[in-house]
Design a protein around this nucleic acid. Sequence first.
DNA 1: CGGCCCATTGATACCTATCAAGGACCGTGG
DNA 2: CCACGGTCCTTGATAGGTATCAATGGGCCG
Lengths: 231, 231
Amino acid sequence: MMPRFRDFTTTELRFVSSFKTGELVAEPGASILSQGSNSAHLFTVLSGWAFRYKTLSDGRRQILNYMLPGDLIGLQGSLMGELEHAVEALTPLVLCVFQRDRLHELYRNHPGLGYDVTWLAAREERMLDEHLLSLGRRSALERAAYLVAFLYRRGESVGLGKGGRIEVPLTQQHVADTLGLSIVHTNKTLRKLANLNLLRWHDRSCEVLDAEGLRSVAKWEEPEERRRPLI
Amino acid sequence: MMPRFRDFTTTELRFVSSFKTGELVAEPGASILSQGSNSAHLFTVLSGWAFRYKTLSDGRRQILNYMLPGDLIGLQGSLMGELEHAVEALTPLVLCVFQRDRLHELYRNHPGLGYDVTWLAAREERMLDEHLLSLGRRSALERAAYLVAFLYRRGESVGLGKGGRIEVPLTQQHVADTLGLSIVHTNKTLRKLANLNLLRWHDRSCEVLDAEGLRSVAKWEEPEERRRPLI
DNA sequence: CGGCCCATTGATACCTATCAAGGACCGTGG
DNA sequence: CCACGGTCCTTGATAGGTATCAATGGGCCG
């Protein structure tokens, strides 16, 4: 029986699905999938951080969300034929590779897993909803606080908090492209949060000092993370 | 056999699923679901327009997306127990009601339908991705052009174009809350688009004069709508 | 050492929010 | 009938938040 609705551990993931066809390792900055691609594969993150983004024709980039261990990569492409966003590694990344044309088969033979895939899609949707609220209605300071608190929470929920400290692996350019701000203003905004003793910025990572304070600045009412399925 | 992957007609929908438990009719402005609710129901739109939104504690509102015939309402709540957004009717609305606790059953007995639910979730995700790009990286004028072109496209794709003309049923307050702009600036921005002969604004609706022109202003590269499943 | 990426900071310009006011329309009640 | 309040749309003036421009320092690597 496949493990499901259990606490997450990276090592377990490697044995989860009979649909696995291989493993893939990528370096930071590596492009995993590109916009408009018609990849034959669907991935699950085994370890590392990645992000997905879209760009306008003139190059403006918007980061849509981040992927951590347990997240699916490329589901949209698998279901609809063509991916409308690109995916890039933020840290060294280990992926589990599935063949997307066997997705139908998965639904037929493992309805529980099919349900779990939908669960993950609904969870992604919920995150995007909150990001939209951020971009549309939060100020720059609130947005930055939300993003850092959000990423901290995500890291924590997959057990990345070694001794309570999590280093979120980002550059300020990533933050800017996530928040829809210029890089200069992003810098000034992060500095304000640092001066409030809510976070500390390192070379290419962010250390959270006060998650509750960040959530408060962001006015973020975080939904409790329910038991999650394991794909 | 249930109809699937076919062209959409409203009347067909009424017979689609054995999981249907009733029908619901709502008036414009009516609240269908509210933030934090734990509704026992899942809906499909049979006719009319609705939208879903989130609010910050101080009242700032962000509209997340719009629902048209064929769209699901409340999937997040069905899968994760609690809905993190509210839903409101924009026009007179007819909904088909399902019982959410039978969703597992649906996946078990009708894997094809389960697949279709996931397809719809992935499609919603794709729309949210584009909205995020809009809020993060498009100017006010581009955003407004994108929104109108987007809603026009959606209406068209479910056959609302009577004689080529579609009236999108919105107030400028809705537009403002979708684009993350103030209502005053929204008004001035829509006026610019009207002066460019791209649209005409009526009392509480928007008429599209030049969909291609709007897409061009927005720099929106619209993905082709594939054959969609019918729930 | 030079080149490059990343973070930082000040000055200025521009886009959007806020404030204020008014017109059009529509239902309601005097 | 008309006055009244409400919602929606419109417009001008001013304030404020964010973008852009310019320049610097630190770290890393060829």
